[in-house]
Amino acid sequence: MRNIKLKLVYYSKLAHKKGLTGSFGGNISVRMGKYVFIKATGGIMEELTPEQIATITINGDVISPIRPSSEYRLHIGVYRNRHDVNAVVHLHPPYAITLSMFEKEAPMLTPEAELYLRKVPVLPFRPAGSVELAEQVSEAIKNYDAVILERHGIVTVGRSLREAFYKAELVEEISRLWYQRFIVEREG
């Protein structure tokens, strides 16, 4: 259990360091059997400690003394719909958020994106932490390993936390490339 919490802390700090999310934004979780480990509500990604990782059951029962992220329903919904998934990464990367305001899906601009992501739809805006957002994401993630949330961020999944994290990086990379192409075409 301690090892899982240390990995969550590591990838949370790495997400902040790489500019994939700001202070309070984003949350990461790992499933282990019937338990889900997730960033606590109000936890700051760059300052996260193992003590700020909440533990809940796959049914959403909180079993740790701290409250889970307000997005815990989203994470649990994904795990219920994807038995092959053991990690969920939800971040607020700026280029992906920008793309979400102009496109209905992210263009697969690199061979890696085509291979590892195949397709990344942009889901219509739903309020953060809402049941509607959780239902929308858990339904969409049945068919995709990554989705972009309009004006909100991204959700990626993987068999491991490492895999889910690097898919998040890949979504932001293609979003940055899209943005650079968008700017060049507008100035062109």
Rank of each mutant, 00 (worst) to 15 (best):
M45S: 15
K18F: 06
Y72M: 09
A54T: 01
E51G: 00
I58L: 11
I56W: 04
I76E: 02
D61V: 12
L48I: 13
T41K: 12
Y11N: 10
V62S: 04
V78Y: 07
K17E: 13
L48V: 11
T41N: 10
A15Y: 00
F37W: 10
I63E: 06
P68K: 08
G22V: 15
Y35M: 14
Y35L: 15
L8W: 13
P68Y: 06
G42Y: 05
Y72T: 02
M32T: 13
G26Y: 06
G26N: 06
K39H: 08
N59I: 10
S64R: 08
T49W: 11
G33P: 05
P68E: 01
G19S: 11
N59D: 15
S64T: 08
A40L: 07
K39D: 08
K13E: 06
N86P: 09
E71T: 00
L48Y: 11
I76L: 08
T55G: 03
S64D: 00
D61T: 13
Y72P: 01
K13R: 15
G43I: 03
H83L: 14
A87N: 08
I66P: 05
Y11D: 08
G19V: 10
P68M: 07
D84W: 01
I53H: 01
S23M: 15
I56K: 00
G60F: 05
T57G: 04
R73T: 03
F37Q: 10
A15P: 00
I76G: 00
T55F: 03
E51M: 10
K39Y: 02
V85Y: 10
E51A: 10
L48P: 05
A15M: 05
T57H: 07
N81I: 02
L8E: 07
F24M: 13
A40K: 00
H83F: 14
A87S: 13
V9S: 05
K17W: 13
I38E: 04
G19M: 09
T21C: 04
S64W: 06
D61P: 05
G42K: 07
F37S: 04
L48A: 09
S29H: 05
T41S: 15
I66T: 04
R80C: 09
I53W: 11
N86I: 07
A54Q: 00
E71H: 00
R31K: 14
G25Y: 12
M32P: 03
L8N: 12
G77T: 05
T55D: 01
G19I: 01
F24H: 12
R82V: 09
G42S: 10
G77V: 02
N86K: 14
S69R: 03
V85Q: 00
P65D: 12
G22K: 14
N59T: 12
H16K: 14
L74H: 07
E47D: 14
I44G: 00
I63T: 02
G60A: 09
T41F: 05
G25P: 09
V85I: 11
E51Q: 10
I58K: 10
L48T: 14
S29N: 01
S70K: 09
K13N: 09
T21D: 09
F37I: 04
I28P: 11
T49R: 12
K34V: 14
T49F: 08
